[in-house]
Design a protein around this nucleic acid. Structure first.
Lengths: 116, 116, 116, 116
DNA sequence: GTGGTCTAGACCACT
DNA sequence: GTGGTCTAGACCACA
């Protein structure tokens, strides 16, 4: 989380890592998340970039703002994010991957073995 | 091939569909591919965009230009593209997919079965 | 008065509810209002926020501080607040509402009827 | 549209004026809207500020982006925006206004007369 | 030409 | 301390 993939916007990558933390329960529901400034300092990126990532999560209903206090993980955020991420994956990403595998004539079993 | 995914550049999407045609043998080796103007008109996109896609394929050694005549599928293009696409998929796309699957706690075998 | 509208500052919302109490005579002239600490505890908000709201009312001449005793509703506060709130409403809020209604093509009489 | 209310963010004011243009049919469906840079230059504000306003409208489904070309009013945007703005007004703004009027003991008929 | 992203630095309001 | 907004200026990808 200290080096960035240059092909995708930092704010998106950051958003994804936060979602991951929530999914993994490392950011517990009801807890504060690190402040915009804190993250900006830690990751050496612009506060606005962090802000954009957090704002996305607020819009998605995973974080909530408390004025002058900070941003908190919404109750139910873990299940919600896990669920929506799964749905998005199965509906959008996975079909493309399957199509690709078939087009390339690859063997799915072979691919899975490589991973074990 | 008439509507575009707004998240990836049109020229890339176009390049991919051409590769697909080559892999599937629908664009046979040694044959002409539709002219830039033709594709641009058919797909209602900018000729420059088509040009860019074709140029990529020339750079990859899948197409060759014959001045004043058109662009042709290189001999051996089918095997070549199949090979390089496979390598690229296994090296780059697949690992990301696997990581995603694991993060979401999904079962790869289950996903693959769904497709049978 | 237990949940806050996140779009307007808490201190303003608090100030407004106090004004409302005065207008409605629920905080009678000459009487004490609940202490800063009390309100802060009841509403689970920062004492400074409560202070700020009370200070506004002192500045507006609706409350007065008596050191070591508390804050009291000024004599004449009810009439005064009713008057100034009315003026503020007619001068600022109402014109904006009317403009909005006209832009949306709504019928003001219809809207008012709905309330009867 | 040349001077800004200092109390509300410029990007929100801008968003609102664009919605107004759509509602009034001054920005017709399917047409381009002025480019980010154009508006920024005209209004002497930062392009990013304009961008933010436009992005909101994209998210609301009133504008759509065409890569490298510009932003266009979505088909059905006029009805959609009129409808949603009306609903938002009646559900949120209007009840607060009515409450305010009643609290202040104002006469709705009187208020409406002032407008004629 | 179009929009997207990021930076650095400033100022503001709220708690 | 918190987040929100804006500016000025830069660089990039796309058509």
């Amino acid at each position: 989380m200290n080096d960035w993939d240059d092909n995708t916007p930092i704010y998106l990558q950051l958003r994804n890592t936060v979602v991951r933390q929530i999914v993994q329960g490392r950011f517990a529901e009801g807890e504060v998340v690190p402040s915009v400034r804190q993250v900006a300092a830690d990751e050496k990126i612009n506060p606005i970039t962090v802000s954009k990532a957090y704002q996305m999560l607020v819009d998605e209903g995973l974080l909530e703002k408390r004025r002058g206090v900070g941003m908190f993980v919404c109750p139910g955020a873990q299940a919600k994010s896990l669920d929506s991420e799964r749905k998005a994956f199965i509906a959008e990403e996975w079909p493309r991957v399957v199509e690709r595998i078939e087009l390339l004539g690859l063997d799915p079993r072979q691919l899975l073995k490589g991973r074990d």
